[in-house]
Design a protein around this nucleic acid. Sequence first.
DNA 1: GGTCATTTAGTTGTGTGCAATTGAATTGTG
DNA 2: CACAATTCAATTGCACACAACTAAATGACC
Lengths: 162, 162
Amino acid sequence: MSATTPTPSPAAEAEWLHLDRQICFSLHAASRAFNGVYRVILKDLGLTYPQYLVMLVLWEQGDLPVKKLGEHLRLDSGTLSPLLKRLEAAGLVHRERSTRDERSVEVRLTEQGAALREQALEVPRRIVSATGFDVDEIRALKARLDQLTGTLDSAALEDGSC
Amino acid sequence: MSATTPTPSPAAEAEWLHLDRQICFSLHAASRAFNGVYRVILKDLGLTYPQYLVMLVLWEQGDLPVKKLGEHLRLDSGTLSPLLKRLEAAGLVHRERSTRDERSVEVRLTEQGAALREQALEVPRRIVSATGFDVDEIRALKARLDQLTGTLDSAALEDGSC
DNA sequence: GGTCATTTAGTTGTGTGCAATTGAATTGTG
DNA sequence: CACAATTCAATTGCACACAACTAAATGACC
């Protein structure tokens, strides 16, 4: 229990706890608020937020195996498999075992899925408008968040005590 | 379908779609990366990230009815009820119908729940360390995110077409 | 005092997110 | 060729998040 670091005063640690409450709550709330705005806007397209992310990747990258899709989105098959099933049930994508490598499943846009892109074109404008930020501010925030994600990911791997 | 707004060129809209893919993915990824780091660090305490948020509020504010807890965290009973049940099963909180107003349920820290705060004192330091940011940078990011959340929430209420 | 709207928790159903496991297919190695 | 290790998708189990609904209690109004 007596750590190697010189223990800070209890009052100082309590302050950190208070700060932590503020920070982690802020990020958590921002993420959910964003999700909420997307939910409203995407309802017209019949998509959830994560489903929209998948469609964005497919519109941009074309057909992809589940593995590649997961790398783009940092999601594993545990999340993607049921999500893709729903997209398939909605008629937006088609899943097919690759003939070259039968472990792999190719995700292809259907005609309907490709056509949905037209309706999605207005989504970003509405989102940006909802944030109240201009494009430069958004880019700056994105850079900040990417930096944070990168550091956090490497920190999670190390899993050190401090 | 011919909107009142002067339709931007398809190429420009496609660029926005590309930017949107970058932005919403960044926030989504940052949120999950944060969640992941908390998951690792909180495992020692036997708490999930949202459970930790609840405990932080209780440590700071003392006993609260579910309603107040929900206001602090912006969560409704659909999320809090099962979460609080799990915290109660873990022996960290106690739930009791208020005698003044029997609709209300008071959430109280148990002795064990209050004692857990001691072990939680080191969490923020480890989190901040994992972010690689200094305190000022974190405060700045928090301010940014709070601003974003505020704007998004009001935008979600209006639900306008743009 | 009795009726109706409101407040408050809880429940149900859907959709992620992630760890852990399973099972099939492929690759590497002797 | 045989056999072990690896890769990939799917499944299972658990824990949010949120919309929609239920049920009980309270308050407001006539």
